Simulated assay, not measured.
Amino acid sequence: MDFGIYVHWPFCVSKCPYCDFNSHVRETVDQDRWRSALLAETGYWRERIGQQPVRSIFFGGGTPSLMPPATVAALIAEIDAQFGLADDVEITLEANPSTVEAGRFQDFRAAGINRLSLGVQSFDDEALRFLGRAHDADTALAAIATARQTFERFSFDLIYALPDQTGAAWRQQLERAIDLSRGHLSLYQLTIEPNTGFAGAVRRRAFQPMDDDRAADLFDLTQRVCDAAGIPAYETSNHAVPGQESRHNLIYWQYGSWIGIGPGAHGRPVMPDGRRHATANVKKPERWLTQVETNRQGLDEDRSVPAAEQAEEALMMGLRLSRGIDQARFRHRTGTALSDLLDPTAVEGLARAELIVSDGDGIQVRPEGRLLLNSITGQLLDGARGR
């Protein structure tokens, strides 16, 4: 089973109004204390789950490109010393396309990063201002050029379905992104998450989100343009040339094993006794830091996951993949057969409606059903829960 490590750096220069991640703005950060704490939590997990090759490391946030490259290098070295790195390990770092951060790309590569994920979000200055981004389109383009020169593998994010965005405007953005990409794009529809700046703005009627029908049209346009360009969706919001998929995210979606390091980080590690645990760290950075300095771990939740919950989690994750769920892999990962989990009446009805494909090998959501994924998952599970 593939094993990965997620490292969360919680600090940002500013808080974007659409963001509901565990991110915080601080005037100063004690870099030495944070480096020591992240290293200590890495050692704690080595003692708990034993040595096993790490297939992927993902530095997320927050804005992990605000970390000193020396801290990134120290963490990679410690993970290698504690667990061992797979020969083809993927080590991704999220970055903003600011001039300062782009100027450090070479240092991050020297530290061991071999894949970059850029938070571009748009090539339109007005859209970037609306999204609260600190960069403009020219800065984003310059950062992409620097990433292309520095990393063999990189990706960048775009957000679409902004208020009043037209299909023609989004197509132009998308085609430009495909031309600039190196085989991977993350394309997210704008969603209004609770407790964000945008949620408050919508309540105040500062703007009206795009309606669902228009957003669905843009989703369909995205699929058509990307498919034609040879960069199809391999997951609901992620597109890649075959072979360029994010290995780290595939660990999540295929229900592999991973640990989370840093404040607010979640994990689903498979323990030495074969049981899978659900873990979540304390969110507040200062509380996490103090707890790790005292106990070498920042856990807020740590529990064994019952078999039924594992099966439901694996289903919800796996149905996001365009390839769907392989029945044999699912049973191996969860100990549950798909036929024991799913409501056969719902399976038959959804297949008849041409929203899913289900056979002896597994189950897959058809392109027509991707926007209805939550509803489809609920229907597949609800009847089975009542049995």
Rank of each mutant, 00 (worst) to 15 (best):
M1G: 03
I5Q: 02
V7P: 02
S14Y: 00
P17R: 01
Y18H: 00
F21D: 03
E27M: 12
D30Y: 13
Q31T: 15
Q31C: 14
R33V: 15
W34P: 12
A37E: 12
T42E: 07
T42F: 04
I57N: 02
G60D: 08
G60N: 10
S65E: 11
M67E: 05
P69L: 13
E78F: 08
F83I: 04
D87H: 08
T92A: 06
S98T: 15
S98L: 06
T99A: 15
D107T: 04
D107A: 14
R109Y: 03
I113H: 05
E126F: 06
A127E: 10
F130Q: 05
G132L: 09
G132D: 08
A137Q: 10
L141C: 10
A142V: 07
A143K: 01
T146I: 08
R148Y: 04
F151Y: 07
F151N: 02
E152P: 00
R153C: 03
F154C: 03
S155R: 04
P163H: 13
A177L: 09
A177E: 12
L180M: 15
S181E: 14
H184P: 11
Y188Q: 09
Q189Y: 02
L190H: 06
T191K: 11
I192T: 08
N195H: 05
G197D: 00
F198G: 01
G200P: 00
G200Y: 00
A201T: 00
R204W: 03
A206V: 07
Q208N: 09
P209T: 12
D211I: 11
D211T: 09
D212N: 06
D212F: 03
D213V: 15
A216I: 10
V225L: 11
C226L: 14
D227R: 12
P232E: 09
Y234T: 11
H239A: 05
A240C: 11
Q244C: 07
W253T: 09
Y255W: 07
S257K: 06
I261L: 13
R268F: 08
V270K: 14
R276I: 13
H277V: 06
A278W: 06
T279C: 07
K284D: 06
T290L: 11
E293H: 09
Q297N: 14
V305T: 15
Q310P: 07
L315H: 13
M317E: 12
R320E: 14
R323D: 15
R323P: 10
G324S: 14
A328E: 13
R329E: 13
R331Q: 11
R331L: 04
T336R: 07
S339I: 02
D340V: 04
D340R: 08
A346R: 00
L350I: 02
L350K: 00
G362F: 09
G362A: 08
I363M: 03
I363W: 02
P367T: 08
E368T: 14
R370Y: 03
R370A: 04
L371T: 07
I376K: 02
A384H: 08
R385L: 12
R387Q: 13
R387W: 09
R387I: 09
